[in-house]
């Protein structure tokens, strides 16, 4: 789990061009969207691509998957449970 959280933070910083934030600065339990890190709908699409490219997870229903996108930690848990690679 710790390993995936670390990977995920790095992938998010890179894919979302968060040039001025280092992966360590991201709080794994803080919300990714809105008040937390402040990501938006385009970032959500970029994170969906991270899941697909790096973990082989294809989201069929993005609305149902929404709770898993709350924080880095919830995403990591979702990856552990659903990863195909």
């Amino acid at each position: 789990m710790e390993q995936i959280i670390r990977e995920l933070k790095e992938q998010i910083v890179e894919a979302l061009n968060l040039e001025e934030i280092s992966p360590e600065e991201i709080d794994a339990e803080a919300p990714l969207f809105g008040d937390g890190l402040g990501l938006d709908s385009i970032d959500a699409l970029e994170i969906i691509l991270i899941l697909e490219k790096n973990y082989g997870i294809r989201l069929e229903n993005t609305a149902e998957a929404k709770p898993h996108f709350y924080s880095v930690k919830s995403l990591a848990e979702y990856i552990v449970a659903n990863r195909q690679k």
Binding site: A15, N17, I42, L45, E46, L49, E52, K53
Partner: peptide, 9 residues
């Protein structure tokens, strides 16, 4: 396949 939307936007 697997295209990131940011550069398109």
């Amino acid at each position: 396949e697997l295209l990131t939307p940011t550069p398109f936007i």
